Computed example of a mutant assay.
Amino acid sequence: MSHPLLLKGFEVELFTGRADGTVVGVAEQAAAQLEGFVTEPDHRNLEYITPPDADYARQLELLLEPRRRLRRWLGERSLTLLPGSTLSLGDSHRFERSDPSNPYHGYIEATYGTRVVTASVHINLGLTEMGALFAGCRLLRCEGALLLALSASSPFLDGVVTGAHSQRWLQFPLTPPTVPLFLDHQHYIHWMDAQLAAGAMRNVRHLWTSVRPNGENRPHDLNRLEIRICDLISHPRQLLAVTVFAELRLLQLLENPQTHDPLRASRLGPDQLAELADSNDRAAARQSLRATLNDWRTGEEIEAGAWIQRELEQVAPLAARLGLSPWLEPLGAILRQGNEAMRWLERHDAGVPLGEIMADGATAMQLAEVEPAPRNTAASHPLG
């Protein structure tokens, strides 16, 4: 069986502020003056979305072009883009509304407060056949902790060390708090209808979980899988490397569901798998690549970094066949040197002030926007 590369797109949330790392909110002005940007309920961060495209080189440019426009606009105001997924040097004790007249924003503030004032990246991968889509959701739900471990970038909040590598994931209000491993499309529809009827969700978008089905008319019309667990990955090439890793796992699943669909390949039942996935996510939020996780296949313990390395070795032949190996290369550096949170914490432990760490991170974020794409690029290329 062969499958082309999947359509993919990104929803990128970013904090804005001064070069010294101080968070300054300008989302409403930026969204009004720049095409393609939208506000979040708190104006200290804003969002842009890339259109779907299967080609990684084109997605790199689609990620960079809006950031460059935004950066020029911010530069005229002596502001910049800030790395990290929490208010590292900000004030999480107050909510700064982007639109005080918006009732939904009022609901968010009253219900969740600044727990939701985070920056992240959501990765959307196109799957239109419902069996494949829900199998993909199951696989990446069970391996979401690996993606969080690679992307963790929120060890600070309000100018202090939190003790976590992804404070964002620990503080963000997962809604509803318990989500099953969906067995198929009908299971998802019935579950969603029940949550809406019970008031556990305000609307169909109010499913805030690590991985979810997505589409224009949820829960019925679906066309993609959305990975929501990743912290902001400020380096575009690293973001694409994480995406390649997730896509290769999905392509393996499509080739051999018997081996890669947790419903078929695990010793654990669906409820146990959902509990395992959530527990792994919390462990990865605390210690990222060093976290002790439980393999969904057997329940046995394994360190996150070792699990990722094992899967990278398994996907390497497929990556080579598809010309994707160069796009995976940044993951090796993350495994060797640590993710952003780990590198920041290492500097902080060595006595570097948090403000200097964030200022250097903002500079590194800007420099990463000029790195060229790999020469060996892959388009929508069939397997085999």
Rank of each mutant, 00 (worst) to 15 (best):
16 T>L: 10
16 T>K: 06
16 T>H: 05
16 T>M: 15
16 T>P: 06
17 G>P: 02
17 G>Y: 07
17 G>E: 07
18 R>T: 11
18 R>F: 01
18 R>Y: 01
18 R>A: 14
18 R>I: 00
19 A>M: 13
19 A>K: 14
19 A>P: 03
19 A>R: 15
20 D>L: 05
20 D>N: 15
20 D>P: 00
20 D>E: 14
20 D>C: 05
20 D>Y: 12
20 D>H: 09
20 D>K: 12
21 G>N: 09
21 G>E: 10
21 G>M: 07
21 G>H: 05
22 T>K: 05
22 T>H: 08
22 T>S: 13
23 V>N: 04
23 V>W: 04
24 V>W: 07
26 V>I: 13
26 V>Y: 01
26 V>W: 13
26 V>S: 05
26 V>F: 04
27 A>Q: 12
28 E>T: 15
28 E>M: 04
28 E>W: 08
28 E>K: 14
28 E>N: 11
29 Q>Y: 03
29 Q>M: 12
29 Q>W: 12
29 Q>L: 15
29 Q>R: 15
30 A>M: 08
30 A>K: 02
30 A>L: 15
31 A>E: 11
31 A>S: 13
31 A>K: 10
31 A>V: 11
32 A>E: 14
32 A>N: 09
32 A>W: 11
32 A>T: 09
33 Q>V: 01
33 Q>A: 15
34 L>K: 12
34 L>W: 13
34 L>P: 15
34 L>A: 09
35 E>L: 11
35 E>G: 09
35 E>F: 03
35 E>Q: 13
35 E>N: 07
36 G>E: 10
37 F>V: 06
37 F>I: 08
37 F>S: 05
37 F>A: 03
37 F>K: 04
38 V>C: 02
38 V>Q: 09
38 V>K: 11
38 V>N: 04
38 V>H: 09
39 T>W: 00
39 T>K: 11
39 T>Q: 14
39 T>L: 02
39 T>E: 13
39 T>A: 05
39 T>G: 00
39 T>R: 15
40 E>F: 03
40 E>W: 02
41 P>A: 09
42 D>F: 01
42 D>M: 08
42 D>V: 10
42 D>G: 08
43 H>R: 15
43 H>L: 08
44 R>F: 00
45 N>A: 03
45 N>W: 10
45 N>R: 11
46 L>S: 09
46 L>Y: 05
46 L>D: 10
46 L>V: 06
47 E>V: 11
48 Y>R: 06
48 Y>F: 15
48 Y>K: 08
49 I>H: 10
50 T>W: 06
50 T>V: 05
50 T>I: 04
50 T>C: 01
51 P>A: 15
51 P>F: 00
52 P>T: 11
52 P>K: 09
52 P>E: 11
53 D>H: 15
53 D>Y: 02
53 D>T: 08
54 A>G: 14
54 A>R: 10
54 A>Y: 04
54 A>K: 06
55 D>R: 14
55 D>T: 13
55 D>K: 05
55 D>Q: 11
55 D>F: 00
55 D>Y: 00
55 D>N: 13
56 Y>C: 05
56 Y>Q: 06
57 A>L: 12
57 A>H: 10
58 R>K: 07
58 R>E: 09
58 R>P: 00
58 R>D: 01
59 Q>R: 01
59 Q>L: 11
59 Q>H: 02
59 Q>C: 04
59 Q>Y: 04
60 L>C: 03
60 L>P: 06
61 E>Q: 12
61 E>N: 01
